[in-house]
Computed example of a mutant assay.
Amino acid sequence: MNKLLSCRHNMDTNRVEARFSDASAIAIDCIVIEDEYGNTPAQRAELDWLLYNKPLEYAQLVLSGKIAHYLSLGCEHGRPKDQV
């Protein structure tokens, strides 16, 4: 796989559209990712936070297969401040 250059979340299709240095592109279906990895409300909130705030990192984690490990770390970006 070539270098990931850019990503954007397409709200109409709920997909992250990624473009690579060789001019290829893919679309990551966010519903499938959430169904597979969002087992708890906190994990779903974290996936949403990544999707809206850092779509490039979201795509990198999904494509590298590291999304499950990332979520297992208990990240708190998606949690309201009073629940942290």
Rank of each mutant, 00 (worst) to 15 (best):
L5A: 05
F20T: 02
A18D: 01
W49N: 06
K3E: 14
R44G: 08
C30A: 08
A68T: 03
D12L: 12
F20W: 04
E36L: 08
D22R: 12
A68F: 05
N53Y: 04
S21T: 06
V32G: 06
R8D: 06
K81M: 12
Y37E: 06
V32K: 14
T40C: 12
Y37R: 04
I31C: 07
D29W: 01
R44T: 09
Y37H: 14
H77M: 04
D82M: 10
T13K: 10
I26V: 14
L51H: 05
L56A: 07
D12K: 13
S72C: 10
V32E: 10
K54E: 11
Y58T: 00
K66Y: 04
R79E: 15
L5N: 06
E34H: 08
C75I: 07
H77G: 15
R8S: 06
M11D: 15
N10Q: 10
R79C: 10
M11E: 14
V16S: 00
R15T: 10
R79L: 15
Y58S: 00
S21G: 05
Y58M: 03
E17Q: 08
V16M: 00
I26M: 12
E17T: 11
P80C: 11
A25R: 09
P41G: 13
G38K: 00
D48M: 05
H9Y: 15
E36G: 01
D82E: 15
L71Y: 04
L51R: 02
